[in-house]
Simulated scan of single mutants.
Amino acid sequence: MDRLTALGMFVAAAEQGNFSRAAEQLGTTPSSLTKAVAQLEEGLGAKLFERTTRRMSLTEAGHIYLEGARQALMQLQLAGEGVEQLQHELRGSLRITAPPSFAPAFLNAVCCRFLREHRHVHLEVDLSDTYVDLVDGGYDLALRDGPTDLPGVIAQPLVENRITLCASPAYLAERGGDVTLDNYQQYDWLILRHPLLNRHFWWVSRGGERIRLNQPAPRLASDNYDFLLACLLDGQGLQFIPQWSAAPYLASGELVEVMPEYWREPSGFGPMVYVLYLTHRRNTRKVKVFIEYLKEHWRENQFASPGGEPGAQSA
């Protein structure tokens, strides 16, 4: 077995903390992985793992070797990508992580267009609300609307995170009357529960004036945004949602804005949606092209993408 393959197997075993899980991830067998690690240990004259029947952990030598192995594999990958960029067509793979709510709002359309126009690129898109580290997860890009102050990560603003109040036309027709700051608590409310969001009040603004609104008792509350959005479209009540999510439904008439002169402040999610990538990826052509597709999507859909060069904000 060549040394490069063995290094990849060692890194996978260290990151998974288990030979069986690492072998499954790599599409090989635990015995092949064990053999690869044994070869490395023999060549180094040092044990890389302490193994018992219950657990497996890196030795001191293993920790040192893991850092070097990661750097070596990363440099080889970057060198390969540099060669790819000499070719006219994009090639290789691109791994992306994003919240599930981004998919129907814009990521589906962007990824499908990217795949149609770049036949030799393979996309892997993981949709999860769980925070994922770009390095440990092996991701090229992350899309997030939460905190972005991460070491070694460039956070480029993509689109404003403006929050608007929406309802279906059918719900408003059934309930009748105009929603105002005086009567809003009389309506049915769909409310997202999230650790970053206040459960007691909202701040809304109009022409520079900030107004504090007490949250009404929800008719429906959930920690899943997509579930609430489906219920909103079904006509179950009112909901504050980001404009980037509301846009296609406002365009189709499935939703309408309520009290459009008021905007809710984005609270813990922050004022922007960001695309994040590691500093050593800033000149990778696949990354740059995909980011441009994201920006083009918002321009074509009349969303103003924030200005600034790639890497306008870095942590």
Rank of each mutant, 00 (worst) to 15 (best):
S168T: 10
G268K: 04
A61N: 04
V125S: 08
P195F: 00
F240H: 09
L250F: 07
S168N: 12
N214H: 08
R54E: 06
F19Q: 05
H280C: 06
R21P: 07
L165Q: 05
S31N: 13
P100H: 03
P169R: 10
E24P: 03
W202P: 00
A12K: 13
F49D: 14
Q186L: 05
F10T: 01
E15R: 05
T148M: 09
V125T: 12
Q156M: 00
G207Y: 12
I154G: 03
R199D: 07
A22T: 10
N214T: 14
G307M: 06
G237H: 01
E67N: 05
E265M: 10
R162P: 02
L190W: 05
Q75T: 02
Y184Q: 00
V83I: 14
R54Q: 08
A167Q: 15
W263E: 09
G17V: 06
S305R: 08
T279K: 15
N161S: 04
G207V: 00
E81W: 10
A69M: 09
D2S: 15
M9L: 06
L66W: 11
A13T: 09
G152W: 03
L196A: 15
R95K: 14
A6S: 07
H194I: 01
A61S: 12
Q25T: 11
K295F: 00
H122L: 14
H280I: 03
S205T: 11
T29H: 11
L197E: 07
L78D: 14
E50S: 04
L255V: 01
S305I: 06
D2R: 05
N301M: 04
K286Q: 09
P151V: 03
A13Q: 00
V153L: 01
